[in-house]
Amino acid sequence: MTGNTLVTVTFILLCHDSAERVITLVRQLLEDDPDCRILVHLDKKSPKETFHKLVSVLDDEPRCHLMRNRVRCGWGQWGLVEAPLRALRYAFDQEVVPDYFYLISEYCRPVRPLRDLREFLTVHQGMDFIECKTSEWIKGGIREDRYLYRHYLDKRKYPKLHRWMYRTQKRLGLKRREPHAYEIYFGSQWWCLSSSTAKKTLCAIVKDPKLRFFKTVWIPDECFFQTIVRLVSRKNVSGYSLTYSCFDNCGQAGRVEGKNLPCGFYFSRKHYL
């Protein structure tokens, strides 16, 4: 299999913390895959100094674009969906569109050569690698109430007020109707989607205003893409992610150590050798 026959990949990199960590990861990806492109989205809440540092370094990388059209990304908030959506819209406005989009964060690290990833995607071209599970996937906390009630606030920033608003809605019987046009699916935030499916996802948002429903869902990054991709690409959904994560009993991603990971993964979250 020659390099010319392999699919191309654009990585969408979500970050908020360390400019140095992001720069190191970007350079690693660009070096390991000479054909990849990277779209970097820095949380708009991050310090200006972090953004300026990224600008000073990444603007000199021709295959990397640091997004200016940024959004605030509170944990469990719509911004974590809006950020990759903006990256996808930017990508489709360019002359060259990749075969695949792979969503990662600054805490993700490749655990296999990126050529292995491209060879795998070439063999399975057209498949979408994203978890699409029922609410049983959720390990801790509320399940269906994530979307049956409106959640406006960042729970980590306003924990008491967030809890009060949720309980008040339940007490007053303000439950929303379950959507009848589609079933809600859940899964890991980190996905690898074909260009075709990514395009269909963007089109679905434009065609169906009811999808605004997700803007007040609790932790929409674990159900929005999972639900829409299942809707627009049902036959091509693999049902699993190519990024390995280790979750605790509360559903929080924990530190992953060592080189011996289960087979079938190409990236790992919070990975340390």
Rank of each mutant, 00 (worst) to 15 (best):
G126R: 15
P47F: 04
R109N: 08
E49K: 07
L88W: 09
A19K: 04
P62H: 04
T134Q: 12
T24F: 13
H41D: 01
E82L: 15
E31N: 14
T134G: 15
I38N: 00
E106R: 09
T122R: 02
Y90T: 12
A87Q: 12
P47W: 03
S46L: 05
R109P: 01
K53D: 05
L121H: 06
R112V: 03
D93C: 14
E82P: 13
R72V: 14
R118K: 11
Y102L: 00
S46P: 09
L25V: 11
R143K: 12
T50D: 08
H41K: 13
M67S: 15
G141S: 11
L88V: 09
N69D: 15
G141E: 10
R89C: 02
R143L: 01
T5F: 08
G76D: 12
G79A: 08
L13M: 06
D43P: 10
K48I: 05
P47D: 11
P34I: 11
S105I: 09
D43Y: 13
L117F: 04
T50K: 05
L54I: 07
R89Y: 05
I130Q: 02
V81T: 10
L121C: 04
E119Y: 10
D35T: 14
D32S: 08
S46H: 09
C108K: 09
S135R: 12
E106Y: 00
D93F: 11
E31I: 08
P110Y: 02
D33E: 03
P34A: 13
I38E: 00
D35R: 13
V55P: 01
F11M: 00
T50Y: 06
F92Q: 14
F11R: 06
L121P: 05
D128S: 13
S56K: 12
L30I: 15
K53H: 13
Y90C: 11
L30M: 15
T2M: 07
K45A: 03
H65Y: 04
C73H: 13
W78R: 11
R72T: 14
I23G: 00
R70K: 09
T122L: 06
A87C: 12
G79K: 08
Q28K: 01
E82C: 12
R27T: 05
N69K: 15
F129M: 07
L114G: 04
D35M: 08
Q125L: 06
E95I: 03
R112S: 08
P110T: 01
K44D: 07
D99N: 11
E119W: 10
I142F: 07
D128F: 14
Y102M: 00
V7M: 00
G141I: 10
D99V: 02
T2E: 11
V7C: 07
E82H: 13
V96E: 06
Y107F: 14
K45W: 04
T8L: 05
I138H: 15
K139S: 06
R63I: 00
F92H: 15
E95M: 12
C15E: 08
R37S: 10
L39P: 04
P84R: 09
H52G: 10
L103F: 14
I38D: 00
C132A: 13
R86S: 08
F51R: 13
V22S: 03
T122K: 10
V111E: 03
V96P: 01
V40E: 00
R118I: 00
T24A: 03
K45S: 01
E106N: 04
L58T: 09
S18I: 05
T122Q: 07
P47N: 08
G76V: 08
R63P: 02
D93L: 14
F101P: 02
R143P: 01
M127A: 11
L117K: 03
K139R: 12
V7H: 02
